[in-house]
């Protein structure tokens, strides 16, 4: 990994546009790669940069670095770029990349770990709406053991202070009885709520 500190090497990556840090190379943390490998249990260092993942990923166009770029940045230790990137939040885990990857890397598994590291390190989350949504889903699971879609949507809207977008969709879904007013829940939601506090790593 020492060699990767050289700017020349970084620029040699060519096909992905790497952030220009100028002389500010000290912010690079070469142990970051090991941290992510360990945390995700995913040996993505075998990535060939063939870009099959980026080619297939249906969210590539909305990403900044795309999946192979994220891997490259991790390898070079660009911690902040990775953790603040929208890319890690736009990955929905559809596994299109995993089946395209000739090295059989579980890229969504790696993204799961990156999101957790980003939250733990309190970095700026540039896709805060996606995070808000996840938090409301988890709150619902904590309360009921299952997801209650109507409440998730209402609380999400409150959190975002956005009351009008999708009003039409919500009303249509209500009219079609696709959103239950009352939650479907498990017998003792405390059993599941406990998992959230106990399961801390």
């Amino acid at each position: 990994m020492q060699a990767s500190r050289s700017t020349a090497m970084i620029l040699a990556a060519g096909e992905i546009s790497l952030p220009n840090r100028g002389n500010d190379m000290l912010e690079i943390d070469t142990s970051f790669c090991d941290t992510v490998v360990q945390r995700s249990g995913e040996e993505f260092r075998r990535c060939l940069q063939c870009m099959s993942c980026a080619g297939g990923c249906p969210f590539s166009h909305a990403m900044t670095y795309r999946p192979n770029g994220v891997i490259r940045l991790i390898q070079y230790g660009f911690v902040r770029e990775v953790l603040e990137s929208p890319d890690i939040w736009l990955c929905v885990g559809c596994n299109t990349c995993s089946i395209a990857c000739p090295m059989a890397i579980d890229i969504p598994g790696m993204m799961d770990a990156l999101r957790e590291i980003a939250i733990e390190n309190k970095v700026k989350i540039n896709e805060s709406a996606i995070l808000s949504f996840h938090q409301e889903v988890l709150n619902s699971i904590q309360r009921y053991g299952r997801t209650h879609k109507l409440e998730i949507m209402m609380r999400y809207k409150l959190r975002r202070r956005d009351f009008f977008t999708d009003m039409d969709v919500g009303l249509k879904m209500m009219a079609k009885r696709k959103l239950d007013l009352m939650p479907s829940k498990i017998a003792d939601p405390k059993v599941v709520a406990k998992l959230f506090s106990e399961a801390e790593k």
């Binding site: 885990g93 999101r115 957790e116 938090q135 988890l138 959230f196 399961a199 801390e200």
Partner: peptide, 25 residues
């Protein structure tokens, strides 16, 4: 009987530990 959320999407997106336990239950 008494099934709970499978741990999909949101749980495994930001709490993979919880996602695993939800599935296990």
């Amino acid at each position: 009987n008494d099934w709970n959320c499978c741990g999909s999407s949101s749980a495994h997106s930001i709490r993979s530990d919880v996602a695993f336990h939800l599935a296990c239950r």
